[in-house]
Design a protein around this nucleic acid. Structure first.
Lengths: 177, 177
DNA sequence: AGTCATGATGACACTCCATGTCATGGAGTG
DNA sequence: CACTCCATGACATGGAGTGTCATCATGACT
């Protein structure tokens, strides 16, 4: 992180990182699949999503499960950590390769949520729509939370985003026949 | 595409591609920023989205704009081309690097749609939610269309996906206060 | 026809990422 | 004390991607 902060991600080589950590390049690649993973390794959110969807009571409306689940993850893993998450996020957004890897991680999370809904007996097509919606809400809320003032809790932002989605759907009405 | 079909994407080197095309490796990289772009280059959909949102009449409900716009792009650019798009999609889904690039292209499209809504005067936060929803619907519908039978038109799948989103939101109701 | 600018391509060298392979050494175990 | 196991180092290699200069075809202008 020190090297990235001073030189940027792209300009920092793996040998540099390894040397700073007192290791060889080869050992670096034994811990991280590639250079980008050094930022993203150890992401537990997909597993959290699976666990939450597996343990939630049956019969709850899926979209309610989503808003509840997002708020819970927000409260458990992000509350009070905004000042610590924001710099990493800035680093990711500043580099094309990292944005790309971030997009892949997002796809991984979507797959986890879709899988979680499938295991709850929701048919694949609907599960896909729900998973995409969940992750979309999550990302918009996170981005907004990180770029906004420090005194707004993430669950509040999530609720606002969902409210916007809901009103957009209500305003548009059903699909024309 | 011939090389990718027989060897897979990862096992095909840029010198191989260049030689098959009668060019040098250096020239390949003058046309494509990297090896992955050879699959994705020339994607016009983000620009289509911008144009559509710029030219659509004012006052239309944004979510209606989305469903209409997606159906239009589907009809204009994908109607009858399912047999031609599906193999490329399979190639992308079979390779990790290509899935990653695909995720980035999706993010690019999201940015274009968000921008389009912003230019229509929709506030940033709402525009972000709308853009994410639009691209989510698009991807789910496209995936479902490509994996399903050949006689279902893409606009129909889009309408079904939106209907699922709408009923999920209606079922869940407003956010708890 | 001759000259010149332009742009595309080839040729070459180079750095960095990523991986396969074997050697080494230290921590436990009997 | 020998032995196994595992992490790391050392080394070699190949492929991606880029900078730089030379070459050559094209077309405009005189």
């Amino acid at each position: 992180m020190e090297l990235f902060a001073t030189q940027g991600f792209a300009a920092t080589t793996v040998p540099e990182i390894a040397a700073r950590a007192g290791l060889t390049t080869r050992t670096f690649f034994r811990y991280f699949a590639d250079k980008r993973e050094v930022i993203f390794a150890g992401d537990e959110i997909p597993q959290l999503a699976r666990d939450y969807l597996a343990s939630a009571p049956a019969g709850v409306a899926p979209m309610r499960l989503i808003v509840d689940g997002l708020s819970r993850v927000a409260a458990e893993r992000f509350a009070g950590r905004r000042q610590e998450v924001a710099p990493v996020r800035r680093l990711v957004l500043a580099d094309e390769q990292l944005r790309e890897r971030d997009a892949r991680k997002r796809a991984d999370l979507t797959a986890a949520v879709r899988d979680g809904f499938n295991r709850r007996g929701i048919p694949p097509s609907e599960a896909a729509v729900l998973a995409e919606t969940a992750v979309a809400l999550w990302h918009v809320a996170l981005e907004q939370w990180l770029s906004g003032p420090d005194d707004v809790p993430l669950p509040t932002v999530i609720a606002e985003c969902y409210a916007q989605l809901r009103s957009a759907v209500l305003e548009a009405g059903p699909v024309p026949p």
